[in-house]
Nucleic acid binder design. Structure first.
Lengths: 227, 227
DNA sequence: ACAAATTTAGACAGGCTTGTCTAATTCGTC
DNA sequence: GACGAATTAGACAAGCCTGTCTAAATTTGT
C-alpha cells in the first residue's frame, strides 16, 4: 500500500514533536516519582498530551521506561565524549586547564538535566532491569573511562604528568574533582557554580601534587619502563 | 495502670522481637522496591508477621518509613564513629595503616547492609522528605566529616602529613579510597574484598604522593619510610 | 477543500493497595 | 491452668492505576 510516495520514511513532524515531549515529561516524572510512583496521567498532563497518545506511541509503561533510559544513555554519552574532546592535550597552564576541564565535565555531564536524571534512574531502578543497565555500563562507563584514561596517558607521555596507571589516574581525577559534591549529589541536588569550581580547584591541586612533574616540563623520554 | 510491678518499663520481649523483625523487613523491602513500590503485605510476609501487627506497631506506611530511616541513620552513625575511632593516630607504617583504615571505612560503613540501605533510601526518596533527610545530613555527614578531618589534622600536626585544609583532605581521602568503586555503588552492588583493598591501596598511595611529607626524593618512589 | 491519519476526552473493567474491622487464636505470666 | 494482652487470618470498602475502547474533534498532506 503506500510504497509509491517516498518523502521521509518517518511520520510527520507534529508526530515527532509529541513523541519528544512525551519522552521529556516521562523522564522528569520517572525521576521525580520512581517507576512505581509515576503514573501515566501525570506524564500525559506534563507532556500536554492525552493518555491514549502515550499508549499509541510507546505501548505500555515499561516500554516507555526502557525507551527513556536508552535515550538518556545516548544523549549523556554524546555529551561526555564531546566534553572529553576538550581535554587539554597541549596545556598552556596545566593547573588552570585541568581545572577548567574538570569544571566542564562536572557541569556538562553530571550536573546537567540528562546527567542528573540518568544517574537517578540508575540508582533507583538499576536493580530491577539488570540487562538494561548492564547495557548502560558497557556503553557508558565502559567506553568513557578508557577515553579519559587515554587522554591522561597522552599527557603523561608528553611529559606533563608522572603517571603509572592512566586508568587509575583517570578515575582518581574525577573522584577528586567531585570530592566535595558527594553529599549534594546523593540527595539529588545541584551544586552552585562556585561549589563546582571550588571542588574542581581543590581536586586538581591535589591531583597535581600527586602526579605533577616536580620541575617545568622536561621533554625527555626513554626512562619510562627502565626499572 | 500497671504501676505495681516494675520489671522493665517496656513491653514484653516477644513484642520487641516483632518490632525489630518488622523494621528489618521493611528496610529491606523499601530499599528493594522504593517507597511507592513496596507494599505492606510484602513487608508482613518477609517479617513473618500479620499485616495488622504492622499497623498496630507503626500506624501507617509513611510513619513506618520515617521510623526506618531514623533507625538506619542512628545505626550507621554509630558504625562510622566506631570506625573513626580506629584511625591511626600513631602510625607505625603510615601507608599500610591508612590503607587498613580506608578499607575499614569502606567495609564497615559503606558496603555493609545498613550503609547500602541508607544510601539507597537517601538517593531514592531524598526529594520526597526534605526535612527528614536534612536531619540526616546534620546528624550524619555534618558530624562525621569534622570528626575525620580532626584526625587528619592531628596526624598533620604530629608531622606525618603536610596538609593545608584538613576538611578538604578528609573528603579527598575518602573520595580517593572509593574512586574505583563508584560504578558498582551506583548500581547498588557490593564490591569484592579484593576490589575494596585495591581501590583503597591506589587511593592512599595517591593521597600520600600529594600529602606525604616531602623529602628531597627525586624521581624514584622507592622509599617512603621516613623515621 | 477533502480524505486519511492522528489526537482527544471520557468511560470502563480489572487488578492491586491501603487501612479498618472482627472474631478466633496464641502468647506470656502468674 | 487461667487470665489478659497481643497476634492472626480474613473480609471489607474505598481509592488509585493500568490499559482498552469509543466516538468526536483536530491536524496533515494533497
Amino acid at each position: 500500500m503506500k510504497a509509491n510516495v517516498s518523502p521521509d520514511i518517518f511520520p510527520p513532524r507534529g508526530h515527532e514533536a509529541k513523541r519528544i515531549s512525551i519522552v521529556d515529561a516521562a523522564t522528569s516524572v520517572f525521576c521525580r516519582e520512581s517507576f512505581a510512583g509515576a503514573n501515566i496521567d501525570m506524564i500525559a498532563a506534563e507532556a500536554g498530551v492525552s493518555r491514549q497518545t502515550i499508549y499509541n506511541h510507546h505501548g505500555d509503561k515499561e516500554k516507555l521506561f526502557v525507551a527513556i533510559v536508552r535515550d538518556l544513555t545516548e544523549r549523556c554519552n554524546a555529551g561526555i565524549f564531546a566534553t572529553i574532546s576538550t581535554f587539554p592535550d597541549q596545556p598552556k597552564n596545566l593547573e588552570a586547564d585541568l581545572i577548567a576541564f574538570a569544571v566542564r565535565m562536572t557541569h556538562n555531564c553530571i550536573c546537567n538535566r540528562d546527567g542528573k536524571f540518568l544517574r537517578k534512574l540508575i540508582q533507583t531502578e538499576g536493580g530491577r532491569y539488570p540487562e538494561l543497565f548492564a547495557e548502560w555500563r558497557e556503553e557508558g562507563p565502559g567506553r568513557t573511562w578508557p577515553a579519559i584514561a587515554a587522554r591522561f596517558a597522552r599527557l603523561a607521555h608528553a611529559g606533563f604528568l608522572d603517571i603509572d596507571d592512566p586508568d587509575v589516574a583517570a578515575r582518581q581525577f574525577m573522584a577528586l574533582a567531585n570530592a566535595e559534591l558527594q553529599t549534594t549529589f546523593m540527595l539529588g541536588g545541584t551544586p552552585t557554580e562556585d561549589e563546582v569550581v571550588q571542588s574542581a580547584t581543590n581536586g586538581v591541586r591535589t591531583f597535581l601534587r600527586a602526579f605533577g612533574k616536580r620541575q617545568p616540563v622536561a621533554r625527555k623520554q626513554g626512562a619510562l619502563a627502565s626499572a
